[in-house]
Amino acid sequence: MGSLIVNKPGLLTTVQDQGRYGYQRYGMPVAGAMDSYAFQIANLLVGNERSAPALELTLLGPEIIFEDSFRIAITGGELGAEINGKRIYSWSSVKINSGDRLTFKGAQQGCRAYLSVSGGIEVEEVMGSSSTYLRGQLGGYLGRSLKSGDSLKIVDTNKGDFSGIIKVPTEYLPEYKDKSQIRVVKGPQFNRFSQSEIDKFFNSKYLISTQSDRMGYRLEGARISHQQSSDIISEGISLGAIQIPGDGQPIIMMVDHQTTGGYTKIANVISVDIATLAQMKPSEEISFSMIDIKEAQSFYHQREAMIRELEQMINKIYLIYN
């Protein structure tokens, strides 16, 4: 069985899949890939199931030595990947050989990239998922981010054992650049804010603070006041919920978010724009625009249709060459 060796861990490198569902009622966060579009495409490019465990890389990628030949893909933000010092394209998969060294020059665009390997990374599933939940120290590789010297096993497969690059057509690439407009739907406590505060929220630019991680993005900008109190009786929280705590500075709940909470929520980022947010870095600016649930769900349908089209195209390539 082949494996990959971590020479340098990078800033924050974790094993993720599409998340751990079914346990939020017990207080267990979902975790999983922050940019689920890039994550799924990375897997498709190497002939895996969409949800196979892959690595999520953050800003500074790791240095990895492959101990066997595989097909690998890198998608998401542009972190400057090189194989043996030679630049490789993002959003494509290539065949690499035993002993090859993968390094990263640094983030040029976006924040998170996904590294998939043909066969998928083999880690023990915890509660039905391979995702790393960092605060709970469980899932993924020993419940933590990767360290130098870690050796990750790769599931055996003969898929992708052919030369040549498989590249995602341009029309399927997300536009991470100039995507500072984040679309939201009304949050459950939208009506508890006055019209002037709601206008303020939608007309202001917010800075993503340095206190932002996989759990949540803290924003800095116009303070949103409450008509009554900032607190509600604790209730379930959804991915992308925008909480307004007592200090009036919004917090966006990301994939490692706690399952319940007692802050008012003015809006909720639509599912497809979570991926856009996942690629934004601290000190970047965002603003919000509102759409309705039907529109938000139709964007989700469109994205799924794109993934299925790509899946079919890529499957054909594998049928011919493999």
Binding site: Y21, G22, Y23, Q24, R25, I233, S234, E235, G236, I237, S238, T259, T260
Partner: peptide, 13 residues
């Protein structure tokens, strides 16, 4: 997909 019961509400994902 799943349920999150709380004090006065039930969230359904």
């Amino acid at each position: 997909i799943e349920y999150i019961p709380s004090y006065t509400k039930l969230m359904i994902v």
